[in-house]
Amino acid sequence: MALRLQHLNPKRTLFLLCDIQEKFRPGMPLFDNMVKNANKLTRAGKELEVPLIVTEHYPEKLGKIVPELDVSHAKAVVGKTLFSMMVPEVKNTMKQLFGEKPEYAVLYGLESHICIEQTAIDLLQQNINVYIVADCCSSRLTQDRDLALDRLRQAGCVVTTSESVIFNLIRDKNNPKFDVVRKLVAQPSVDMQLGRFSGSAKL
């Protein structure tokens, strides 16, 4: 299912932050880099008033979202055991926010080939335009992440980066939030070594 690349509308866009939890840090390559990029994206989303939903996978054992990420503005922080984020509480929050569903979902977090991929499948089945933020995604094996990004692109997701999403939402230097967000993007995003494996996603 190929989808056209479109401009993101903050009023019709949902940010979905998936399972960036402290217990995953030791076993995840480039974890700290991913968190820095995710922090930039999440802060920009807050400034641009894009609703955020956060999940934590089995938080009783795997802990909370990492402290570097301020998710206090999230519309819901939901514990789950399902790999997909599309659990009843998330679906209900989406319906409350958008009447039924968002037009665009910006998805990022862990792990690319499991929770991100399965969430994207569920979103695509609802005919939601899915933007996967590649520099804010990780897996225990980088090849798993890269191959998942390749599959997701082929499935109809837009595979993009945090700065691309941010500027797509702003659209215009005269946007009243431009000066605030400009400070967030003053430093380039941190390298996530995307597409370094043969046969993997090329961004």
Score class of each variant (00 low, 15 high):
67 P>H: 15
161 T>N: 11
121 I>H: 10
48 L>Q: 05
31 F>R: 05
106 V>H: 01
173 K>C: 06
191 D>M: 00
18 C>T: 13
42 T>L: 14
93 T>E: 15
95 K>Y: 07
12 R>F: 09
43 R>L: 15
43 R>W: 05
162 S>Y: 01
69 L>P: 02
2 A>S: 13
50 V>D: 10
51 P>T: 03
16 L>H: 09
63 G>T: 00
2 A>C: 05
38 A>P: 07
122 D>E: 15
57 H>I: 02
184 L>M: 08
42 T>Q: 01
183 K>D: 04
38 A>Y: 00
91 K>A: 07
55 T>M: 00
60 E>N: 08
46 K>V: 09
115 C>Y: 03
61 K>R: 14
1 M>G: 11
202 K>L: 10
36 K>P: 07
106 V>F: 06
102 P>L: 11
40 K>N: 04
48 L>K: 03
68 E>M: 09
187 Q>H: 12
199 G>E: 05
79 G>M: 00
35 V>E: 03
46 K>S: 07
110 L>P: 11
59 P>K: 13
96 Q>I: 12
203 L>A: 12
51 P>N: 00
93 T>V: 10
23 K>P: 02
77 V>C: 09
27 G>V: 12
58 Y>M: 07
143 Q>C: 09
36 K>Q: 14
7 H>R: 12
113 H>K: 01
41 L>C: 02
26 P>H: 00
166 I>F: 08
196 R>H: 08
123 L>P: 06
7 H>P: 05
177 K>Q: 11
166 I>K: 06
84 S>P: 04
83 F>M: 14
159 V>M: 04
189 S>L: 08
46 K>G: 05
155 A>E: 06
201 A>L: 14
132 I>K: 02
14 L>I: 11
91 K>Q: 10
112 S>E: 05
196 R>F: 09
40 K>L: 14
6 Q>G: 07
179 D>I: 06
96 Q>G: 13
114 I>C: 13
70 D>L: 08
33 N>T: 09
52 L>A: 03
144 D>N: 14
87 V>L: 10
192 M>C: 12
178 F>N: 04
113 H>N: 13
75 K>Q: 09
128 I>L: 01
104 Y>A: 11
23 K>G: 00
195 G>D: 00
184 L>I: 01
10 P>H: 01
74 A>V: 04
196 R>M: 12
84 S>N: 01
145 R>F: 12
117 E>K: 12
175 N>Y: 08
89 E>L: 08
180 V>N: 06
18 C>R: 01
132 I>N: 04
184 L>K: 04
55 T>V: 00
127 N>Y: 14
177 K>V: 13
173 K>T: 09
184 L>G: 02
105 A>I: 01
5 L>W: 05
80 K>R: 03
4 R>L: 12
24 F>T: 07
125 Q>V: 09
84 S>Y: 03
37 N>E: 08
174 N>H: 13
119 T>S: 13
89 E>K: 10
46 K>Y: 11
15 F>Y: 15
106 V>A: 02
198 S>G: 10
